[in-house]
């Protein structure tokens, strides 16, 4: 279940290393009432999402039933239990983008990927997030896919953009297959 390591720098900590690190941090939350949500937030920051074994660790250490931990996680939409997708698609909902149809772009994206904000596609490729102004207001509405900016996006064009990344993935798979 470990995170994919960056091929260039293998120093990226593994999930196991992060877990050991987190276990130490978690000691600070033990026996503090109301420690569950802060502990979950810290974990999500560290891992990027909430892996099951982290939730199990929290349940054990804070002595809170597992069902309650997952109940709290599933209650708040800012918690996620799936790792972020390879492509993080962020839709700007800052004022300029909002006025020029950012919401429709988001809706179209959600439809295309069949997931909501904070979600990740089952194949692990795409996640959706929203942002507040990417500093390209003149070219609103704007979306970003990882570090690449796409400007003046129309809802009808969303599929095209996504297909571009899907194609890249297809090529990679084909190459691997030889």
């Amino acid at each position: 279940m470990s995170l994919e390591k960056c091929p260039e720098c293998s120093k990226e900590p593994t999930e196991d290393e992060l877990l050991a690190q987190f276990e130490e941090i978690l000691d600070g939350y033990v026996e503090k009432p109301g420690g569950l949500i802060p502990a979950l937030q810290t974990a999500q920051k560290l891992f990027g999402y909430l892996p099951k074994r982290v939730l199990q660790l929290i349940s054990m250490k804070l002595d809170i039933p597992y069902s309650e931990v997952t109940g709290v996680v599933s209650f708040y939409s800012f918690f996620t239990t799936v790792p972020k997708g390879k492509y993080m698609v962020r839709v700007c909902l800052g004022t300029a983008c909002y006025v020029r149809g950012g919401k429709d772009v988001l809706a179209s994206l959600e439809k295309e990927l069949e997931i909501g904000v904070g979600g990740t596609t089952p194949d692990g490729l795409f996640s959706i997030d929203v942002g507040r102004c990417f500093g390209a207001c003149g070219l609103a509405p704007v979306i970003m896919v990882n570090d690449e900016t796409h400007q003046r996006v129309k809802p009808e064009k969303v599929k095209e953009i996504i297909d571009f990344y899907r194609d890249i993935e297809m090529t990679i798979i084909k190459e691997k297959a030889g």
Partner: peptide, 25 residues
């Protein structure tokens, strides 16, 4: 399950209409 039996197998999962009283996840 939580208070009388201190087992904690059941808890509301999710929120709103689609929430479910059930074990984890």
């Amino acid at each position: 399950c939580n208070e009388v039996q201190a087992v904690g197998a059941l808890f509301p999962q999710g929120r709103g209409f689609s929430s479910m009283i059930s074990p984890a996840f």
